[in-house]
Structures are given as structure tokens and as C-alpha cells.
């Protein structure tokens, strides 16, 4: 299996994802420059976190016009996996590969901390190594992570099992006090209908090594790897 990490001007978790995939998960990995018109011979495309184009206008709003995004869309339409983390999730919303939009955090402040997630869909190619309802500890770091969509979309998301993760307490309770950004229905990660595109605000690459205090993110990478075995 080979992964490609898209580098936009302003991406800053590109190196972190590269490190985890190469040195921890130990798979082939390459960078994909935003000006390329092809993603190359790649199985998994990762849109990393950061501030693509300075987040000017709106997070992800400019990145969606990068030449590489057409290639990423083609990759997704072929049913191949695309993982958008943080800013990558915002770009997937802007380009329309996932439904919905992002609002500023309810606190109006950037927030970086560990949060707990509940696995809502353990059957997608990103979550097969997780148990239904499994609680993960993974950090977030964003200023605009309040997921929002209209009611019909929300019904569809629920009906199609497209909500991958929700913010919960350490023991799995839902509640506003455990929701770090005011996301609708505590949504932290969303899948497309086909299940091959995942957008999530939390950063699995920051919690894939014991030395960083938590390895729960590793299970997401391992799930993708397993889907390719």
C-alpha cells in the first residue's frame, strides 16, 4: 500500500502524517504538490491539517481550486480512500466530497487539547479495527471545527451511518461540556455515502505513538492498512 500526502501552501501537518505513515505504520509514502494534476500511483490520499492558503476567505475555500483537487476528486470517485484531517476535512467540505460546512468554534477561540471520541461507524475502511462504540483519545487543534449541515443532510447522515465519530466524555457520554467546538450533534468525523472518504477534525497522527501519551490514532491507520491487505 502506498499513501500520498497533499502539500498545499500553508499545510503544516504534512510532515507529521508523513512521519507516522513511514516510520510508525511503515508503509510507502510520498508528498503530492498542490500544483500537480495527478495524485500518481497512490492508494490512500491524505489531506493534512494546517492553514492552506492562510485560511483566507474561509478555511479550505481557496485550496479547493488547487489543480491537485481535481485529481483527488477522481481518486475518490473511483472508490479509493481519501482521508481529510482538520484543514483537510474543511477542504473536503468545500470541494463537496463530504456534505456540510464548518463554523467557528463556539468559544470563538482556537483550541488544542486531547478529546474523547466515540466510534459510531466501525465498518468503514477507516474504522474496521475499532469496536462499535469504542472510545478513542485523540487531540484536536482548530479554530473552526463546528460541524454544521441542514436538517435533511443530517437525517441522511444518520440514516446512512455516515457519522464516523462524535465527541464524548471519557466514559462515552454525550453532552455540550464534552463538545469542544459546538459541532452539530457532537459530530467529529463524517464519511461519504460510499464510505471511502473520511473527514475528521481530531488528529490521529498526533496520537499514534506511546511517547506522545496516546496511541489510539494508530487504529485508524491500521484499519486502512487492513482494508488493503
Amino acid at each position: 500500500m502506498k499513501a500520498g500526502i497533499v502539500v498545499f501552501p500553508g499545510s503544516n501537518c504534512d510532515r507529521d502524517c508523513f512521519h507516522v505513515l513511514r516510520d510508525v505504520v511503515k508503509i510507502d509514502v510520498a508528498y503530492i504538490w498542490h500544483k500537480s494534476t495527478s495524485v500518481g500511483e497512490i492508494d490512500l490520499v491524505v489531506l493534512p491539517g494546517g492553514f492552506s492558503y492562510g485560511d483566507y476567505l474561509r478555511c479550505g475555500a481557496i485550496a479547493r481550486f488547487s489543480p491537485v483537487m481535481e485529481a483527488v476528486e477522481r481518486h475518490a470517485r473511483l472508490g479509493r480512500p481519501v482521508l481529510g484531517i482538520c484543514n483537510g476535512f474543511q477542504i473536503l467540505l468545500e470541494v463537496g466530497l463530504l456534505p456540510g460546512a464548518m463554523l467557528r468554534n463556539k468559544s470563538l477561540r482556537f483550541v488544542c487539547k486531547h478529546v474523547h471520541l466515540k466510534t459510531e461507524n466501525a465498518r468503514s475502511m477507516f474504522t474496521t479495527r475499532l469496536e462499535p462504540g469504542e472510545i478513542l483519545k485523540i487531540p484536536i487543534a482548530h479554530g473552526e471545527g463546528g460541524y454544521f449541515c441542514d436538517e435533511r443532510t443530517l437525517e441522511e447522515l444518520e440514516a446512512n451511518n455516515q457519522i464516523a465519530f462524535r465527541y464524548v466524555s471519557e466514559t462515552g457520554e454525550l453532552g455540550d461540556e464534552f463538545n469542544p467546538n459546538g459541532s452539530l450533534r457532537h459530530i467529529a468525523g463524517v464519511l461519504n455515502k460510499e464510505g471511502n472518504v473520511l473527514g475528521m477534525m481530531p488528529h490521529p497522527e498526533r496520537s499514534s505513538e506511546q511517547i506522545l501519551g496516546c496511541e489510539d490514532g494508530r487504529k485508524i491507520w491500521d484499519s486502512i492498512l487492513e482494508a488493503y491487505r
Binding site: 510532515r15 512521519h19 507516522v20 491539517g49 488544542c112 487543534a141 497522527e205 511517547i211 506522545l212 501519551g213
Partner: peptide
């Protein structure tokens, strides 16, 4: 204060 700073990017921060 420090929750407003991204203190984990680069994944090298072993003491938060």
C-alpha cells in the same frame, strides 16, 4: 492560555 496555542503540531512535544 496554552489551549489556544497549537502545542502539539510537529508531533515532538513529549511534555505538554
Amino acid at each position: 492560555i496554552y489551549e489556544q496555542y497549537d502545542h502539539m503540531v510537529r508531533t515532538d512535544t513529549v511534555f505538554l
